[in-house]
């Protein structure tokens, strides 16, 4: 392993990241480093600031305080260049409802300026991979919730990203689809793609993440590998660690 701090080794570097939405503190000074090729998890209760962090990374929320470097560049200054190398699976489905499944992928390739021949090739591949080849001419509204999520994930891979941001990618997926996604994420990681993942499923986080942070009320309350965290807090599993650290609501 190369020493930490080598520029090409850190995919995302956040220092003192903070954000308020008219009075509400969404993020309250967050520091973390995501190393290239890792699967890095963000856990935390509803409203902890996970989506806010993700949106800052993919340029849909402005950094208010602190600094955020993504793929070696300051996201506030070089948003266009950074976004060209990212894949984004947002928490809420924002597929193009006026287009078919296949067109959603083709048009996405268009947004990245990918030529039509290359786009056709990648789209055919992604349709296979997302098990949507049979539904390629369906409109988005004709898909089930899980199929939409699969399309959303396929869409995030059209530009062969170096870093994929996945905000609750498995919410609403059936066990098979979830397994398939896990295998896909394994494969992407084997190819050296960095993954950022939020999830409310602790067994999923334990299964996938090399490292993770637990956020609560906009602050990081713990950071480490799943095993480290379990050992550090003397809990039987990650879910118990999570409840132990974020159980303030239950105490009241």
């Amino acid at each position: 392993m190369r020493p930490l701090g080598f520029a090409g080794d850190v995919a995302v570097r956040a220092r003192g990241l903070a954000k308020r939405y008219d009075g509400i503190v969404a993020l309250d000074g967050v520091d973390f480093d995501v190393r290239t090729g890792q699967c890095f998890g963000f856990l935390g209760p509803n409203g902890a600031g996970k989506t806010t962090t993700m949106k800052m990374i993919y340029g849909l929320a402005a950094v208010q305080d602190g600094t955020l470097e993504v793929l070696g560049r300051d996201i506030s200054r070089e948003r266009r260049a950074v976004k060209a190398r990212l894949g984004v699976v947002p928490q809420e489905d924002n597929l193009d409802r006026e287009l078919t499944v296949r067109e959603n992928l083709l048009v996405q390739a268009g947004y990245f300026g990918i030529g039509s021949e290359e786009a056709e090739r990648r789209v055919a591949e992604l349709l296979e991979f997302s098990l949507l080849a049979g539904r390629s001419d369906a409109m988005v509204r004709q898909l089930s919730g899980g199929m939409r999520r699969r399309l959303l994930i396929a869409r995030a891979l059209v530009n062969e990203p170096e870093l994929v941001v996945l905000d609750e990618p498995t919410t609403g997926l059936d066990p098979q689809a979830r397994q398939t996604l896990w295998h896909t994420l394994d494969r992407l990681r084997d190819q050296g793609v960095t993954l950022l993942l939020t999830t409310h499923y602790m067994e999923e986080a334990a299964r996938l993440c090399d490292r993770l942070v637990i956020l609560d009320l906009g602050r990081i309350v713990a950071e480490g590998s799943p095993d480290e965290l379990i050992a550090r807090y003397g809990q039987p599993h990650l879910e118990a660690v999570f409840l132990h650290l974020t159980g303030h609501e239950l105490d009241r």
């Binding site: 849909l60 948003r79 924002n94």
Partner: peptide, 14 residues
């Protein structure tokens, strides 16, 4: 409603 603008803005389009 469809948040299409969000999805476009997550690509290199500003």
């Amino acid at each position: 409603e469809t948040r299409l603008y969000d999805s476009i803005l997550a690509t290199p389009i500003e």
